[in-house]
Amino acid sequence: MIMLGENMKQKILGIIPLMVVMLFVAFLAVGDNQTYANPVNQQVTVTVPQAIAISVETPISFGSVPAGTNYAVTPEYWISNNGNVKIDVYVKAGSTEFTSPTATDTIAIDTNYYIKNYNSGNFQQVTTTDQMIYNNMNKASQGSGTPTVWNGAQQRLNVPAYTEDGAYSITMIYSATKHN
């Protein structure tokens, strides 16, 4: 049995924490060397969230249209895709007729109200259900965020003869859904 003096004991107790620290440093160093010795491919993934967006010029106007006029057209207006996904654009009227706060007459949309279709270039009948007018509208530009804009949207209206004078209005809704 070896008897240690009090002084020796204190020295040993002082060395132990130093050895633990040295072992820890050595372990880290070995671990670090192993990383260099055996390189592995690190896969980095990033998820870009999708966003859908649509904008449209509002309000637009046919201006003053005499009763009995066929093929009155609005000035061309814009519809844009401001999101980072491609969209299909549909359109519907908010009601079945143009109404006036003063006149008792109305202008029915059926056979009178049309909107231009981007893909065919033709005017199509406006209804109160969503009908496609632009298939696969491109997303906004990467980086700049400049939206894809269709500047050639247009509407056409026939105002029946002897329609009472007054201001007439309707609400149009442009729906966007992600193009699949």
Binding site: S55, T58, P101, Q155, A167, T171, I173, Y174, A176
Partner: peptide, 20 residues
Amino acid sequence: VPIESQNNNGVNIKQGVELV
């Protein structure tokens, strides 16, 4: 749908948007 005052002249269209 825009909360905007109606134009009192001519034939006007208020245009709104919808996301599906």
